[in-house]
Design a protein around this nucleic acid. Structure first.
Lengths: 335, 335
DNA sequence: AAAAATAATTAAAACGTTTCGATATTCAAG
DNA sequence: CTTGAATATCGAAACGTTTTAATTATTTTT
């Protein structure tokens, strides 16, 4: 059958252990030996069996990737892209990724099998993860954990987050550069952490430009952060009769809602009112006019998570804190 | 640390082997023994270590999922959904899925690691897969393979395919029921197998309704199957001046292109011209008017693939042939 | 030149299962 | 009863690595 480490040892004229040492780049090996072994490995087209390694080393060589089902199946492939970024980066480090979705309402039944079977060396948790799982993990496992796009409410953790504050600031600064002074902020569900940060960025940008914050240009009382919320919020703003020449929307969905409302009222975008969104969802580029928005590199987020996770696994140390991933302005036709 | 099979054996008062037999549902076990062991397993919260199993049984417990990078990263999450469906179903059978993307231009360097490491018991190939990989697989491995949405050009294979012919027939029949008689078919890149099948379905539906095929209502000479191709094809049709009251487009992208053209020419959809697409992409439901189209259950396709693959793995047999997944009409506002 | 330190290599145990063949027990048929 | 088959359980080998400690070879120090 296929070659094993034994065959390599025989061919290279060394012991099993030596081959293993070469395989794992261990020290105290003579260059000749290393060459002999490497030659034999390539001659035999040898590849160490994954499960044998796992058994002996007590490392699985796998990384678990957990997100809630609603996050993955939603239309916008935000987490899909993050996952893909992780998969790519993991390959560079020779790790496999085991993906699993869990239900929002966590119960003991839904503990990912790769945890029970000790089949992962570390875990990535993407998006809003139920407390139950977080507690279960920290109580029963000692493997490193990296959060993506979610900061657990308590306890020390390591998280990869979107730099919402800075992104929002950039968005508003873009509008300021275009000469806008009366910039509205449209947002729903202000309780959401991202929305709060984006609001903060909006306020900071105004402050830096010496423009006072005008409460009447801020709508934060919509229930959701959807298309519809954006639509309603814009209608509300227009009804007040207060002048504004630009809108910064909390996300693209709302920005699109804004545009729908404006179109209905025959207000031209960007001539009469400019709009900036946030997220750069796929349709942002397909609507008319194309939406200027803030893009975050999702693949990069996944890659950063892997890099850090692998470091924690191999160096057996724990990182804590936040990594803020920068956001980039994508200028299109709505501004 | 965590319990092993040894602990279970001790606790249950039986031998290692017996526990293993229970674990694997083997025959010739007394009910009392089974109960004793199961009790011990649950008492100790025992879960067999994945790599140990893999090593001893020479089965990895993993399934490989391969697709080309361009397929996975494209905007429309077609293959993402298939993958998700696979992941869900695989969980039911206690398999892990290892996903990897490969480049379109295959080379030895890009052989998925899980193949080299003997770390999968079977493989799913989704979408257009380079011949090089197919040959490599069949020459070097004896593991079962299931294709999804792709039929390899030669050799025996087992594939899960969209029932394009039947779907197209349904689409056209829907238009016929709505009273349309002059139905155009708009399609680019007719060399593509799916497009050929859809064209075939179109012709069959007409034939069944005793309506002669009129070549002048068929556009198949566009270069791509994109939005733009649909747009151009429609313009071409309109220019001929020939009457038609409905369009069946080869896919949603083209259907959307058709609508754009009609909107430009102030032709109302569906009042003057009705449109049916194919695929049910996400934006089909977001445009105005919402697009009537044909939906295929992508998750189901993934699940079917897993079911068959697992059967082949466990029963050590090979299935051959095609499974055609039915397509469903989604009636919206464009008809 | 001997002793000590270091470098290079190896033997053997360990990892936690499955599986094969052996053994013990029960059952049915002669 | 005796024998042969079927049932139930077990002991031990095997799977292919890593890792620890031991051994041998080499270099450095005194």
């Amino acid at each position: 059958m296929t070659a094993t480490i034994k065959d390599v040892a025989k061919k290279a004229g060394v012991s099993l252990s030596t081959v293993s040492l070469v395989l794992n780049n261990k020290t105290n090996l003579s260059p000749e030996t290393i060459n002999k072994v490497k030659q034999a490995i390539s001659d035999l087209n040898y590849h160490p069996r994954h499960s044998a390694r796992g058994l002996a080393s007590k490392k699985s060589g796998n990384i678990g990737f957990i997100l809630t089902d609603d996050h993955f199946s939603r239309a916008e492939p935000f987490y899909t892209k993050i996952f893909l970024g992780s998969e790519f980066e993991a390959r560079n480090y020779n790790y496999y990724i085991l993906l699993t979705t869990i239900e929002q309402n966590f119960c003991k039944k839904s503990i990912p099998r790769f945890l029970l079977e000790k089949n992962v060396d570390g875990v990535i948790l993407a998006g809003h993860i139920p407390d139950g799982l977080i507690n279960f993990l920290s109580n029963n496992y000692n493997i490193p954990v990296v959060y993506i796009d979610y900061l657990p409410p308590k306890g020390k953790s390591f998280a990869i987050l979107i730099d919402n504050v800075d992104g929002a600031k950039l968005a508003v600064e873009h509008l300021l550069e275009k000469g806008h002074r009366d910039i509205a902020f449209v947002c729903g569900e202000i309780s959401h952490p991202s929305m709060q940060s984006r609001f903060l960025g909006y306020k900071q940008a105004l402050k830096n430009a010496d423009i006072p914050l005008r409460e009447e240009l801020v709508v934060t009382d919509e229930l959701a952060t959807s298309d519809e919320s954006g639509h309603n919020a814009t209608c509300k703003l227009l009804k007040t009769g207060i002048h504004f020449s630009a809108i910064f929307a909390g996300n693209d969905a709302m920005a699109i809602g804004c545009m729908k409302c404006l179109k209905k009222k025959q207000i031209s975008v960007p001539d009469q009112i400019a709009i900036v969104g946030f997220d750069d969802v796929d349709i942002a580029n397909q609507i008319d006019p194309k939406l200027t928005t803030m893009r975050v590199d999702k693949e990069e987020m996944g890659a950063i998570a892997i890099k850090n996770l692998v470091e924690m696994i191999t160096k057996e140390k724990r990182n804590f804190g936040k990594v803020l991933v920068p956001v980039e302005l994508v200028t299109r036709n709505s501004t």
